[in-house]
Nucleic acid binder design. Sequence first.
DNA 1: CATAAAGCTTCCAGCTGCTGGAAGGTCAAG
DNA 2: CTTGACCTTCCAGCAGCTGGAAGCTTTATG
Lengths: 132, 132
Amino acid sequence: MQIREVEQSAGLPAKTIRYYEEIGLVRPNRQDNGYRIYSTEDVHRLRFLQRARGLGFSIEDCRALLSLYDETGRESADVRAIAEAHLDEIDRKIRELKGMRQTLAHLVHACHGDDRPDCPILDDLAGIGDGA
Amino acid sequence: MQIREVEQSAGLPAKTIRYYEEIGLVRPNRQDNGYRIYSTEDVHRLRFLQRARGLGFSIEDCRALLSLYDETGRESADVRAIAEAHLDEIDRKIRELKGMRQTLAHLVHACHGDDRPDCPILDDLAGIGDGA
DNA sequence: CATAAAGCTTCCAGCTGCTGGAAGGTCAAG
DNA sequence: CTTGACCTTCCAGCAGCTGGAAGCTTTATG
């Protein structure tokens, strides 16, 4: 299978697929002309990566997950530990974004948003608290 | 005021302050020896940046907000438009993270996480659906 | 058979927003 | 006069790609 076809079946752009090879996540063979040739297993790994990345795992997490996937003697606890750490990280990000969201929504609400220059959003950013 | 002191009052590391100058967000004067010297207004701008970044605005948004802040004839609608677009973006990210969170929490829950190799997390990533 | 279009290759640069570190100038204290 | 704290510039690197140039190969068409 050539790269253009793998794009479809793995759901990843060719550039990304080559990049994943460059950083050692997948090792396709080469044809005589130098073209990459992907086995079903290569495509499998790429799909794995596509899903793991879609869940927000970092590249290094993906590398660890893939190697656990390869390792038949793995302990599921190791996999779960990675996933739990990532889950915590996601929760942290959600909390952070919600904090921003709240402040921002409040400010947007307070701003009349017309042709006049006075603006609670700018006031807040400038550190002019409303005292409340 | 020299940079080390500005670090404290703006709540930004010196490296970042210099970087903000490099990209034209602030323009401190120089002493004869070449040292940067920050006016109260410079510090003010930096604090503005610190807050805006803390709310997750991009550097380009910050640039736009600062220039609206400078512009006394601004329309608050312009400020609000930037803030609303950013709010939408935050909401999008929260939704994305929540989607990940849900899938991942489900998988973590399903994984017994012991010394055995079978693992629903890896199965899912490998595309082995549980058919449900 | 010539040529053009499509697909492949490598390599280099750039994106965001800093951050670390090296090499070196300046200044106040002892 | 030296030490140490501060300041400067410049260059490199982080994540995770993405775009583009320059140049092969292969396939389709006239």
